[in-house]
């Protein structure tokens, strides 16, 4: 039973990684930028959701508004930070992004205080029992949320103009332009979608822990970087698989290696080991 519960716990965490990392990989595929500040948007989404839910009494309303606001903030970040830096060497945008992330986290601490905020209602702590298994309601929400989002993503990338334009631009930007793809619009679209995903992930984590705090973006930010490398940068399916795999490996790893290694370091040991064997990532081409 322990093994199965560990696996479930791993999948719950892996789903959260997936929702965050998929946005990063979409953006990397498009711009070759490692958007570290993505996790800052994740935290922003969590704060907005908690504050609005407590103000309005509706988690749905809080989350929806949070998604919209964070989506717009994501586009603003693209416009003000990355667009002017695209012609520079890649490390310039990376360092700017790290700077923005640090400033955002500190900004939350300064504005909202260091201790974090919680939801006023309590249904989240209830447990759902299904046969021999029992899970926290929030865990179920995370899994269901991830499944819904990922189906939405599959439809978006596979069936819509934005998805096709993204794939065309990733394959060959010049070719995409010559076929009439408006690459500027695609960029704004992708930043919006990726940021909305970050907001949802942040909201789900807020529900899961019934807590938002300024540093809650730390773990997802560094881990999702490891994940998109494992997934083969710019590879959406690879990123999803790597997220779930890492979630499960961490769940078991904590049991077996906990005495020698911090949980948060497992991802990077795994990453470094994989890169030594397959420098292109687990699921990367070439």
């Amino acid at each position: 039973m322990l093994y199965i519960e560990l696996a479930l716990q791993g999948l719950v965490n892996g789903s959260m990684y997936a929702i965050v990392a998929v946005g990063l990989t979409l953006i990397y595929g498009l711009l070759r930028v490692l958007h570290v500040a993505h996790a800052g948007l994740f935290t922003l989404g969590a704060y907005i959701t908690v504050l609005l839910t407590n103000a309005t009494g509706s988690l749905v309303a809080g989350t929806l508004i949070s998604m919209l606001v964070v989506g717009i903030v994501g586009m603003v970040v693209y416009r003000l930070l990355y667009e002017p830096l695209l012609a520079q060497p890649p490390y310039v945008a990376l360092i700017a992004s790290i700077g923005l992330f640090i400033a955002m986290e500190e900004g939350y601490r300064i504005i909202f205080g260091p201790y974090g905020n919680s939801f006023a209602s309590t249904w989240l702590t209830e447990r759902v029992t299904l046969g021999p298994f029992s899970m926290a309601a929030a865990d179920v929400a995370m899994l269901l949320g991830a499944i819904v989002l990922l189906i939405f993503l599959a439809v978006l990338m596979g069936r819509t103009r934005l998805g096709m334009a993204w794939r065309a631009t990733v394959t060959d930007p010049a070719m995409a332009r010559s076929f009439g793809v408006d690459t500027i619009k695609v960029r704004y679209g992708i930043f919006f979608v990726a940021s909305v995903f970050a907001a949802v992930a942040g909201s789900l984590v807020a529900v899961l822990n019934n807590l938002v705090e300024p540093t809650m973006g730390d773990v997802p930010s560094y881990k999702s970087l490891a994940i998109i490398v494992l997934g083969g940068l710019g590879n959406v399916t690879g990123t999803l698989l790597a997220s779930l795999l890492l979630g499960v490996i961490e769940a078991y790893g904590t049991i077996y290696t906990g005495a020698y290694l911090d949980r948060d370091a497992i991802a990077f040991v795994f990453l470094i080991a994989v890169l030594m064997i397959r420098p292109q990532g687990l699921f990367g081409a070439r």
Binding site: R32, Y91, Y222, L233, L261, D264, F268, I272, P279
Partner: peptide, 29 residues
Amino acid sequence: LASLRVRADFLAITTMGVGFVFVGFVRKQ
């Protein structure tokens, strides 16, 4: 040596990983 095997984008992440592994290792020793 590890950095030679990975692309420039990966290097930043690999070195970041080394930092986390170091701290994660020492914490448990």
